[in-house]
Nucleic acid binder design. Structure first.
Lengths: 337, 337
DNA sequence: CTGTTAGCGCATTCAG
DNA sequence: CTGAATGCGCTAACAG
């Protein structure tokens, strides 16, 4: 057994009471500097490590953060998760995972079950879980703090967001600078705020370039490879086909590229393709994909930090903003002719 | 507050003692069937949910399983994790994550810190964390149960494994059946058992087909896209180049495909390519990749089940075996000419 | 088969 | 600024 040493032992070693040790450990005020140091020394010498369960039970806190998700993108999740873990570690919290089925009517019940069983001190929500009114309402009833990553609405909500509209706008500007005028867009899943933002940025980008919006160049999608395949099939069948396709995410772009190559189109000579998200795959397909980088790890970390803040004092969490970065790679080039 | 109802309330409602309720909840013996039902009814009626921390503290168990990993493949991890979570859920356990740096000399210390702080009741090890003698030794000193997924050595070790050698052998057989004789292999990371198994299967497959092993057709790799790029560069520069390249995993195969397409080779007409793992990407690249499917989710689930068994009674965990499946897709075809 | 007694290790009163 | 008592909700020993 490792930690047979208890707070009582530390107290004895430092010639103080248990309570004083507890104060030092929890960074509470009202401890003289020299006694604090004495306690810390004893903690160190005895290699004391507080017991999680005892702290939870006595303090009525679980020191647990739950990460809620339904997003099927493993890369996105692993990165967010890494950020959440990093923030948890520095605050002596542990992270729980809560995979959800977005389309299930029982989603609120599932979260309630998690909360009842594990009593997390707070929740980190990832899109599109961020945008379920019923869930949000229940959480505030339960008075359980949460932080959202890229939620649709930022109002009085802790978390972190990136200006995806501006990023999409910039991407279109990049295509325009390469001489493209017939720029198509394959949209994302309608339930995701990201789809709206990226589409809005696309349209604003066209407008800014003085290019009239052509409805035939906008097709529906759902952030999947398959929707890229379908979308590209539709777009490349057009009599006047686009010279560039801006897919709402990298998976969709991969579908576009597959279709284009199957049709013996050269990328980017015959068709420019770009995506969004900068997944590892975007560097591993041929040709390497021009896309938008999101600082996903950092977003997970910052959201968790805000969550932790609002756990300590309600209303302390804020909505933070992080920068994006265009990754220009081989899949975009000058417009043909 | 949800669970203001305690075991005491349930006991009162069922007209039994706290201890009897505890027995029922923990599936302990020595409870008459009718009292058990009475208790269960009360639990249900009052919507009683046991308190995690109190159970941990009193029982000296954390009800926590830690998943140790360093594998950079997000897809692999998310699938394993899903399996671990599924098994945990059915046993009222929670899962903790422990990302590790394989090359760090502090890896054992990191695990010790996790064990000291969070006191998991058991650990699930993923490759190549499964094969660190120093770590394994420390864990048995600490007497903390563990289960391994695809460990190099199966001896007295709980967990789950797949016959990767046989799978690689079958893959080569598939290529041979398509008429290939010059079959190259780009190996995986030397630290992984999987690299050995797959290489062994490759050589056995050649031998079985009566094809002499050609050292120039075997190049080193490390399971990365980049190693596929380098390996393919080398192999395609050969005067007598291979007609098929069997990459040790899908990422490596993606690198091969990129190089081949850059050189204007047609796949599979000029060159067949296959991988291993059946990552989602394998279906999303062009052409879709022939590969080997591992039941990763199931492996995580089964390993956790074995771990849970060996937590309950030491030496109860066994080494389980799961089947693989070849996924034949577009990237392999008849050998040229 | 069931109940009673005593802590698990800590934080939280409220005194000094 | 510090300390002594009390209990968080549950399970482990023992009794019956």
């Amino acid at each position: 057994m490792a930690s047979r040493v208890r707070i009582e032992d530390v107290a004895a070693a430092a010639n103080v009471s248990m309570k004083t040790v507890s104060r030092v450990l929890n960074r509470e005020p009202n401890v003289r500097e020299d006694t604090r140091e004495r306690v810390l020394a004893a903690v160190d010498r005895l290699n004391y490590i507080p017991d999680f369960s005892a702290r939870s039970l006595a303090g009525n806190k679980s020191f647990l953060i739950a990460l809620l998700y339904n997003n099927p993108s493993a890369n996105y999740l692993m990165e967010v998760m890494g950020g959440v873990l990093a923030a948890c570690e520095s605050h002596q919290y542990n992270m729980l995972l809560c995979p959800l089925d977005f389309d299930s009517p029982k989603i609120v019940a599932n979260v309630e079950a998690l909360v009842a069983r594990s009593r997390p001190d707070g929740l980190v929500l990832t899109p599109p879980i961020t945008d379920l009114p019923a869930l949000l309402a229940r959480l505030s009833e339960l008075e359980i703090p949460s932080a959202s990553i890229s939620p649709k609405v930022h109002a009085n909500c802790a978390g972190v967001a990136m200006d995806e509209t501006q990023a999409a706008y910039d991407m279109v500007a990049h295509l325009v600078s390469l001489g493209h005028r017939r720029i198509a867009h394959i949209a994302g899943h309608p339930a995701h705020g990201a789809s709206d933002w990226r589409l809005t940025g696309y349209r604003q980008g066209l407008e800014r370039a003085g290019i009239e919006f052509d409805p035939t160049l906008l097709v529906a999608g759902e952030f999947s490879f398959e929707s890229g395949v379908h979308g590209a099939g539709e777009l490349l069948d057009l009599k006047r086909r686009p010279t560039a396709i801006f897919a709402a995410n990298d998976d969709t772009a991969a579908g576009v590229i597959t279709v284009a190559l199957e049709r013996n189109l050269r990328i980017p000579e015959d068709l420019s393709v770009c995506g969004f998200d900068d997944t590892p795959m975007s560097r591993h397909i041929f040709p390497a994909l021009t896309t938008v980088h999101q600082p996903t790890h950092e977003m997970g970390r910052l959201a968790t930090l805000e969550l932790l803040a609002s756990i300590q004092k309600p209303d302390a969490g804020e909505m933070l903003h992080v920068p994006y970065a265009l990754q220009l790679r081989r899949s975009t080039g000058p417009a043909p002719k």
